[in-house]
Design a protein around this nucleic acid. Structure first.
Lengths: 148, 148
DNA sequence: GTGCGAATGATAATCGTTCTCATTTGCAAT
DNA sequence: ATTGCAAATGAGAACGATTATCATTCGCAC
């Protein structure tokens, strides 16, 4: 099972702006982008597109299962191209870096917890927040710069 | 360890609006309320309070550890009085009912996943979404009302 | 190429939340 | 109890993210 490379396969009319958004999502290295970041990148690439269209395209992609929307902390939703592999996320509280992981034990526990409580599990959201200790992460500074 | 019953114990000046908000949170049966719901309930109870004050009080309570803020789906944050017992939530996608649970296995897995990925875990957000099958839940209707 | 409905984009509108600022309050010293 | 002052309040403006509006343009079937 792989994603349809063509929008029509997802039931969407194949328009230029949609193709541009999809293409960007397929080729960009950071898989988790805000709508505005996508919009800016397209403008920088010389494309003519409106922010509203980016939002519309992403919402449709999400409905079609091409894209997943996440609400990490910080107000702005981020979108990622769906690859058919469920995973959860860990986000660095300092630099915003996002990594993905999958844990079968947790998934099973979630299912049995929902059952035990009388729910039919439909979805879940699990995001861990931590400090990533990466060399470029501002959280790694031994001492902050003098105030001011 | 129990919560300070007095705002001063939490480092906050004891003002009438803050006391009203705290009192409401302590006495209301639904432990998960939006700021606006709290505001409305206080107005209905005859209190004079502004929505901005409710938000401010909640933000301060959160900073003081008296209250926890959750971002479930739906745009509006919900607040709950902190009882010192960490837990996660399961939310009914039909009626919005919220239940709490705690699973030691999941907590431990989260910790070890973060470590394995090189993160120091600071926080996490885990919310399950499901159908609650409660008798009053609209999701239980055998057939929806005729359209229109 | 034509035509029509769907898609686009600029902008206004919306929603939840925070900020501004003039007024009021809590509290400590009197 | 009164005073004084910083901190808190409340009404409404401002804000940021997202969605709706609506005239224009596009994609696609004929």
């Amino acid at each position: 099972m792989h994603q349809p490379k063509h929008l029509q396969d997802a039931g969407l009319k194949s328009t230029l702006p949609r193709l541009k958004v999809l293409e960007l999502l397929e080729n960009v290295e950071d898989r988790h982008l805000t709508a505005e970041a996508i919009y800016r990148k397209l403008l920088e690439a010389g494309e003519e597109i409106g922010l509203a269209t980016v939002y519309r395209a992403l919402t449709q992609f999400e409905a079609a299962g091409l894209v997943t929307r996440h609400h990490f902390e910080g107000g702005q939703a981020v979108f990622e191209l769906e690859r058919g592999l469920h995973h959860d996320h860990i986000v660095c509280v300092h630099c915003g870096r996002v990594e993905e992981f999958y844990d079968k034990v947790i998934e099973k526990r979630q299912q049995s917890i929902a059952e035990k409580l009388g729910y039919t599990l439909r979805d879940h959201n699990m995001t861990l927040y931590g400090e990533c200790h990466g060399p470029d992460c501002p959280g790694q500074k031994k001492k902050g710069p003098a105030a001011g």
